[in-house]
Design a protein around this nucleic acid. Sequence first.
DNA 1: TTAAGTGCAAAAGTTTTGCACCAAG
DNA 2: CTTGGTGCAAAACTTTTGCACTTAA
Lengths: 174, 174
Amino acid sequence: MYSANSLKAELNAKGWRLTPQREVILQIFQNLPRGKHLSADDLSKLLEKRGEEISLSTIYRTLKLMTRMGLLRELELAEIHKHYELNTTSPNHHHHIVCAQCNMTIEFDNSTILKQAIKQVEKSHLELIDCQLTIYAVCPEAIRKGFPAIMSENWACSRAKNAKDKLEQDFLSN
Amino acid sequence: MYSANSLKAELNAKGWRLTPQREVILQIFQNLPRGKHLSADDLSKLLEKRGEEISLSTIYRTLKLMTRMGLLRELELAEIHKHYELNTTSPNHHHHIVCAQCNMTIEFDNSTILKQAIKQVEKSHLELIDCQLTIYAVCPEAIRKGFPAIMSENWACSRAKNAKDKLEQDFLSN
DNA sequence: TTAAGTGCAAAAGTTTTGCACCAAG
DNA sequence: CTTGGTGCAAAACTTTTGCACTTAA
């Protein structure tokens, strides 16, 4: 977990500055319940709700910066746009399964994957920042309903709906 | 490799139709050299160059459809927008390493990853469509130049530049 | 002090959609 | 025939940028 001080140190070492905006944003991600990700827009709305509004441009710039620094991971789940979460090593490092039909997302742990990533990166003489295994699959409900067609474009299985409700209930509306 | 006939069968089974546009698009992906990916826009330009223009809306709709069908894989590499390639099982199934600094992309094979994905999917009672391990790393040149800061926003290491030139030379301009 | 960071508004892209027409099955 | 697909143009979004003003170091 990053303190404001270590963030400052890391930024300053590169000629960058610690600003209140950057501190707040990192804090939000640090307090995000496991398994929740935020898009630029989610983050903006959340900040607004908390009365700490930060301009969208700054949000975009900060997300990009922190991703490049290796502090955040950029998730590309399903067709929804980019989401971010904290980039942590063990014990929270995890991967995702996404339903190709309804975008439902499940997290899972798997230490073998990280080991393989380390192996590959060493082979290419690179420095590892993050690795994400994204599995695209179809959930049983979607299969039953006749994947991959038949259903309307914005059909979502009940699991996906629950997950979405749960996200809002857990986090965005408090 | 999909023939026009098997594509037709798969589409028809779901109440969809085989159109010349869909056939051409699938064919393009089938003939794409290994390691090349196309964005919607690349595909559009390529088709135009070949004199088989297809409207951008149709391209977007087709890419989405084929991804949902499991025919294409949607790649989310670096900060560049979505790219697509054929979704193949062995021997062409592969994964990507992306430089967080310059977006250079390297492909690699690793059969362990697919095995892990199958394990995870079975555990959740899902049906596998695709799995992609994306490794974010920093290339040596970027490290030397002082990653993650100092360099300008659109700095790219020489490897990235070469890779980009190579793509154009290999494929887009012929 | 001074260079980096922010917010705003505008611009640049990318992706989606409504609708009339076309064509596959 | 009938229903799904296409192309076009417009709309909707998301993300980036130029610029004047702040502010961290």
